[in-house]
Amino acid sequence: MLQNDSILTTISTARTDTIAVHSAKPQTPYEVLRLLPKDATPAQQDSAIQEWFEPKEIHYSSRPDTLHLPGQERPRDLKEVNLPHYYRENFFSNNTMYHPELSTERIGTSGTPIPYSFQNDSFVTGILIICFLLITFVLSRISDFLLRQAKHFFSTQKSEQTLTETGSEIKFQFLFLFITCLLYALLYFFYTTHFIANTFIFSSEYILLVIFSGAIISYMVIRMLLYTIVNNTFFTNKKNLQLQESLLLITSLEGVALFPLVLLMAYFQYPLQNAIIYTVTILIFAKILTFYKSYTIFFNQKGGFLQIFLYFCALEMIPLIVLWSGLLVITENLKINI
């Protein structure tokens, strides 16, 4: 009580001083609180406000609501659950602007569409993740066999030797072949969208990617068939198996070398010019290894130096040139000329 009395005394003094200075009473509680000391408690602030302001009885209007048509009964609240359906109907009931759950045509000018990017493509991301898992799984299963193949690859023995392969090892190598074809298709798709065109007659980029993959897989199958037909005609079956093992090894190593490049281009915006140089280098190195192995298996004798060039150009370079020309023709026919 003493504290409250002191506060009221202070307020009265402040009130007298305020009236003397301003000759007007505070109009808001904020002005009353400014008259109190900074350490005033909430109870003291409430007492001060009640000292200045006296609550009055609120008189609500008793006039009827006239916000409806004359002669009609008072409108009912639309929030009522049991309200009949005809109460809810009005002139705008069927307007689609009041029903966002219904499909409507967009009003206004459409903006510039976001360009396609592999970074935002979950399908391509899933393919790359699957490729990574498959490469890791296959390397964990046949890493010893690949090392033995690599050691046997540069063997200079003249005797015809082949490595014993199990059925699972052959399947894993063909799986590597498929992954390599898919990575080459992705790289060519990057090249196409950057240098040739980025709009095609298909509504989905996946169709174009499947076409490129199918063309490259067809090239690999046709090349192996040509090697098999020619080698079985002029050489023994055992030498043909030696070359097929070497070709599968070279193709598998191509896929392992190209996978980091595809990741860099898809998610880290690696310069395409550097990627082309890297891809051409890998391709040239693979052709050199193929040339070397063909020479050591079939033409490692006197007088076979000229035949190896004819053999290599007919079975390796000409199919590669046909593949590149075919991909260019396919792209030219599928792109949209603006």
Rank of each mutant, 00 (worst) to 15 (best):
N120R: 13
Q301W: 13
Y206M: 03
L306D: 04
V81Y: 09
T41M: 06
T136H: 07
N333Y: 07
T166L: 00
Y278F: 13
I114N: 07
Q149E: 14
P70W: 08
Y184L: 12
Q27M: 14
I196S: 03
P115A: 04
Y227G: 00
F202H: 05
D17K: 12
T296E: 12
G111Q: 04
Q45T: 09
Q27D: 10
T251G: 12
G255E: 13
V230D: 02
F137I: 02
V21M: 12
M317W: 13
F212V: 00
A257E: 08
S203H: 08
I277N: 08
Y98N: 02
K158L: 14
E245C: 01
F145R: 09
H68D: 01
E205R: 08
S294Q: 14
T281M: 12
T164V: 09
I308H: 05
I114M: 12
I49T: 10
V280P: 00
I179A: 05
Y267V: 06
Y98L: 10
L69C: 09
Y292D: 02
K25A: 14
H59C: 05
Y227Q: 03
K335P: 04
T199M: 04
G167P: 01
L323F: 08
F91E: 06
T193H: 11
I211Y: 09
S47P: 00
F53K: 05
K302D: 15
